[in-house]
Design a protein around this nucleic acid. Structure first.
Lengths: 312, 312
DNA sequence: ATGAAAGCGCTAACAT
DNA sequence: ATGTTAGCGCTTTCAT
């Protein structure tokens, strides 16, 4: 027998030898049917292309593999409707689902969560009991970035925002408000942005119009797009304007100047998501939300306020 | 019945209604067991982090999803031994395997292919009958890049090579040799490189020592690393030296200067890989290897030979 | 300690 | 056209 029971060791040896000889191993599909578990989990992402999800996926898949689990991927192509169907459909072929930053509204998410159970949520929180949540602490990250810029003398700031309805944007906005409350001499203008390089690129006019000296972008992609557009206009970063991003995607360090940003430990997010899933699969208590605090990486894109604009 | 047979339409309607009512749908696992097919395929990649595989994975997963198939991912973490085990193990839970750029030697690949069957190979070719092969035409791509540089007046060139045993590096080297045969006035020095940004970064000394005016990097990452190191030394691209990459990874266009490179249509590679797999799954004839010819994107990193170095 | 049998949830082949 | 049955490849329970 492959497992273990009260079997004669000699016999077991021979059986194993024969199995090896015949290159036999039990069919995972048949086992899945009878055991009621597939040893597979699925992860649903809005877009496989997004650098953030790569990291999560990699951390997750390697961690799961170490525990003998397989991972199914489902790319919802940013479609909210698709996301629901996909998750439910996929769930049936595996033991649990990891939902990455689901786009759907809270009201839709709630019932889905119980239908999908067990599920762990990455980068989207929801105060629903029983669903572990792994998030990057966007608020703390942005607060630190604000402090950094403030410390460099910047008082007139701009925040190039993310998607209006995005939870992680709301988090950053909360940090902005809080900061404003604590620093009455600072001003922060909100400039509509988005999530992509292009969004940052096209935000340049409004950023320039804001006449601010330091800008915080929703994420690194937006920051890079902005820097690129700034560069084309001959505006030097950080000499004339400071720009900071968020995420620390692999290329952030390779920009010129290298991007100052808040590093989100994506692979760890993924790894952690797996551990929570494992707990769920083995009926451990869910545990409280895990907050990963981003780490500020101070590279070259943020500098002191240009002398000409310094407030005396 | 869920499928179709000679059943009364009215009855079928009622059954479907009841199924919907009870939120019932057939268990995929049980179906898999009895049908002998899982409607799932797996893709094995050496490293999920690699931008090239993201694109392939995305194209593949979306195409497969359109045909109602699911995809399992397996990250071999660059380990050759792991790759074999992983592929065989994973194969049992699905209907076929897509192997991305397997690192193993031809002699090991050969027998594995039949064990894994059906399998399609991406970015690694092998003249084994029955195994569809999807590759980017590295040789043609590099040849075009060489021609581009030559056309700009460069005669003294350097190639920062990839991994010694890599098939795609061999392809590029073949282009180098062929080019040399056709252009007796050109010289191409081979500089040891690698696959990563760091590899390019550390190749800078040798590139400078080569005193060449145009350099072709194994891939975009290497080119970027090199450009970054060049920048730190105050050497301007393309004014003082031209640099071209290969792949057109998402960030290539965002470098300063934007990178001139040969674009490999990764998503299409993935999509095509799925179609070949589908053919195999439905017993169509395998078809001949598909070569995707990279397209040159002439951006800002390649320019004319600096006047001071021009050959008169 | 070992062998026999039931059954996981389905589909296909067979009887009616 | 509809109802019944065998069996996919396993694991587990129950007899021996």
């Amino acid at each position: 027998m492959n497992g273990n029971r009260s079997v004669d060791e000699g016999l077991a040896q021979k059986v194993r030898a024969a199995a090896a000889e015949l290159n036999y191993s039990a069919s995972p599909v048949a086992r899945s049917l009878v055991l009621g578990k597939t040893n597979t989990i699925a992860v649903v992402v809005p877009d496989l292309e997004n650098p953030t999800f790569h990291g999560v996926l990699r951390g997750l898949s390697r961690a799961a593999a170490r525990d003998g689990y397989h991972v199914l991927i489902a790319d919802s192509a940013e479609s909210v409707d698709e996301e629901r169907i996909l998750a439910v459909e996929t769930r049936r072929r595996c033991d649990g689902i990891v939902l990455c930053a689901p786009r759907m509204a809270d009201a839709d998410l709630r019932p889905l969560l119980s239908e999908l159970n067990p599920v762990v949520l990455v980068n989207r929180d929801a105060q629903f009991s029983g669903t572990p949540v792994i998030v990057a602490d966007y608020k703390a990250g942005l607060a630190e970035l604000l402090t950094l810029l403030y410390g460099l003398g910047h008082r007139s700031l701009a925040y190039v925002s993310g998607p209006r309805r995005s939870a992680s944007n709301a988090r950053r906005l909360a940090a902005v408000r809080e900061f404003l409350g604590d620093h009455s001499d600072a001003t922060i203008q909100i400039v509509p942005g988005g999530v992509s390089f292009a969004d940052g690129y096209y935000a340049v006019e409004r950023v320039i119009a804001s006449a601010t000296t330091g800008v915080l972008a929703f994420n690194d992609l937006v920051a890079m797009g902005l820097m690129s557009a700034l560069g084309e206009r001959g505006i030097r970063v950080p000499d004339q304007i400071s720009v900071v991003g968020f995420d620390d995607i692999p290329f952030a360090r390779y920009m010129t100047p290298p991007l100052t940003t808040a590093a989100v430990p994506v692979a760890e997010l993924g790894e952690h998501a797996w551990h929570r899933m494992w707990d769920l699969l083995h009926e451990r208590r869910p545990g409280r939300p895990t907050n990963f605090r981003p780490q500020i990486v101070n590279r070259g894109s943020a500098g002191p306020v240009p002398a000409s604009k310094a407030v005396r």
